[in-house]
């Protein structure tokens, strides 16, 4: 049964956009919290936290996000933990986001000059105070542009939840296309919706980046990491 594309279909797509936004928000916020843990472990003094967090980053940067989602969704259900498509997608995207952001933030923390740590220690501050009062405020300025930029990545990645059957924007587009059979029209509209969500953030990220560059506070290593998230140039 094929019917024509109508305003009702547009409404379906716009409703589904809310789920794309909700999933992006949950994954991004969850990712922010976990990324902080990863970044702190990556820059910690002890060997064990460094190794564990490095392995975590390797695992999530070295495998397809789609596989991570499948493992969570099908894996958990088979192991007897009933997981909905929504929670599998939210958890999977959170873990994925935290690996990439954690690595970006590690670069930001390492870009804070060593002298700042020494000065904090000289003032008699302990590690928690050094990191919270001295290092993080400085790292935060460096971290903002790439973090906003990664949010674009998160929004685009939520489209993979459609493969688990979760009805966000891309899945809704497939469903509407199945009834109306207007693929070009439906996927064009959906592209425009994604673009309107993502482009302002891309623009903002670039503006913030330019402002930091104008202030001369961007370090070359950090810029390299920004471009080269898998650290090809870092051949240690």
């Amino acid at each position: 049964m094929i019917r024509d594309f109508s305003s009702a279909d547009l409404l379906i797509l716009l409703r589904a956009t809310q789920w794309t936004v909700a999933l992006s928000a949950v994954a991004f916020l969850g990712g922010l919290v976990m990324a902080l843990v990863i970044a702190l472990m990556r820059t910690a003094g002890g060997r064990l936290p460094r190794m564990v967090s490095a392995a975590y980053v390797e695992l999530f940067q070295g495998t397809p996000l789609l596989m991570q989602l499948f493992m969570l969704f099908f894996g958990a259900n088979i192991l007897g933990l009933p997981v909905s498509a929504w929670s599998a997608a939210a958890i999977g995207l959170t873990l994925y986001t935290s690996a990439f952001l954690g690595e970006i933030w590690r670069g930001c923390i390492e870009a804070v000059p060593r002298g700042q740590w020494d000065a904090a220690r000289a003032l008699g501050l302990r590690y928690p105070h050094q990191i919270v009062l001295i290092v993080i405020p400085q790292a935060l300025r460096l971290a903002t542009p790439p973090t906003v930029g990664f949010l674009v990545q998160v929004i685009k990645s939520t489209s993979l939840a459609s493969i688990l059957g979760f009805v966000e924007l891309t899945r809704a587009a497939q469903l509407v296309n199945n009834i109306t059979f207007r693929p070009l029209l439906v996927f064009s509209i959906v592209s425009v919706i994604y673009f309107m969500l993502c482009w302002p953030l891309s623009y903002l990220s670039r503006r913030l980046e330019a402002r930091l560059a104008a202030g001369g506070v961007r370090s070359p290593q950090l810029e390299a990491l920004d471009q080269d998230p898998l650290r090809i140039a870092d051949s240690r």
Partner: peptide, 8 residues
């Protein structure tokens, strides 16, 4: 760069 690969 501002749309998902799956949609492309």
């Amino acid at each position: 760069r501002n749309t998902p690969f799956l949609v492309q």
